[in-house]
Lab assay of single mutants.
Amino acid sequence: VDNKFNKEQQNAFYEILHLPNLNEEQRNAFIQSLKDDPSQSANLLAEAKKLNDAQA
């Protein structure tokens, strides 16, 4: 993981990586967004979790 991520951002990265119901395309999009703007990690994680739950 890129060293410019802080602890919260790293946690978001790993959580998104391991959400079971996202397809690869969705997962990659969230990860790319996280890399583009790490400050949005909490929002991105919340969105990813919502999508993950919706696809459960």
Rank of each mutant, 00 (worst) to 15 (best):
V1P: 13
V1A: 06
V1Q: 08
V1L: 14
V1T: 11
D2R: 00
N3T: 06
N3P: 03
N3S: 04
N3G: 06
K4A: 13
K4R: 08
K4Y: 13
K4G: 15
K4D: 14
F5N: 03
F5Y: 07
F5R: 00
F5P: 14
F5K: 01
F5M: 03
N6M: 02
N6K: 00
N6R: 00
K7I: 11
K7P: 12
K7Y: 12
K7V: 08
K7L: 04
K7T: 08
E8R: 01
E8I: 02
E8Y: 03
Q9Y: 10
Q9C: 09
Q9P: 03
Q9N: 04
Q9K: 00
Q10T: 03
Q10N: 09
Q10F: 04
Q10A: 10
N11C: 13
A12W: 06
A12G: 04
A12K: 02
F13W: 12
F13D: 01
F13L: 06
F13P: 01
Y14G: 03
Y14F: 11
Y14L: 14
Y14N: 15
Y14W: 09
E15D: 06
E15Y: 10
E15K: 05
E15V: 13
E15Q: 05
I16G: 01
I16P: 00
I16S: 01
L17G: 06
L17S: 13
L17P: 02
L17C: 15
L17N: 09
H18G: 08
H18C: 11
H18R: 14
H18F: 10
H18K: 07
H18M: 06
L19P: 00
L19D: 01
L19A: 05
L19T: 01
L19K: 01
P20C: 09
P20R: 06
P20V: 05
P20K: 04
P20H: 08
P20G: 12
N21Q: 09
N21V: 02
N21I: 02
N21D: 09
L22D: 00
N23A: 10
N23C: 10
N23V: 08
N23H: 15
N23E: 05
E24I: 06
E24A: 10
E24M: 09
E24V: 10
E24N: 14
E24P: 05
E25I: 09
E25C: 14
E25G: 10
E25W: 05
E25F: 03
E25K: 08
Q26S: 04
Q26C: 07
Q26K: 08
Q26Y: 03
Q26E: 09
R27V: 14
R27F: 04
R27I: 14
R27P: 00
N28Q: 13
N28F: 14
N28W: 07
N28V: 06
N28L: 13
A29Y: 12
A29H: 09
A29T: 12
A29R: 06
F30S: 02
F30V: 03
I31N: 03
I31K: 04
I31V: 08
I31F: 04
Q32G: 12
S33G: 11
L34G: 02
K35M: 12
K35I: 04
D36Y: 10
D36W: 13
D37Q: 06
D37H: 09
D37W: 09
D37I: 07
P38E: 02
P38N: 02
P38I: 06
P38R: 04
S39P: 07
S39C: 06
S39I: 13
Q40V: 04
Q40S: 09
Q40C: 09
Q40W: 09
Q40K: 12
Q40R: 15
S41D: 04
S41N: 03
S41Q: 03
S41V: 11
A42Y: 07
A42R: 10
A42H: 14
A42D: 11
N43W: 05
N43Q: 08
N43R: 09
N43L: 12
L44M: 05
L44G: 01
L44D: 01
L44H: 14
L44A: 14
L44C: 09
L45S: 10
L45M: 06
A46I: 15
A46Y: 05
A46V: 14
A46C: 12
A46F: 12
A46H: 13
E47M: 06
E47K: 05
E47S: 04
A48R: 00
A48F: 02
A48Q: 00
K49S: 12
K49N: 13
K49A: 07
K50C: 12
K50A: 12
K50F: 14
K50V: 06
L51R: 05
L51P: 01
N52G: 03
N52R: 02
D53P: 02
A54R: 08
A54F: 15
Q55I: 14
Q55M: 09
Q55H: 03
Q55L: 15
Q55C: 09
A56E: 15
A56R: 01
A56P: 08
A56C: 13
A56F: 14
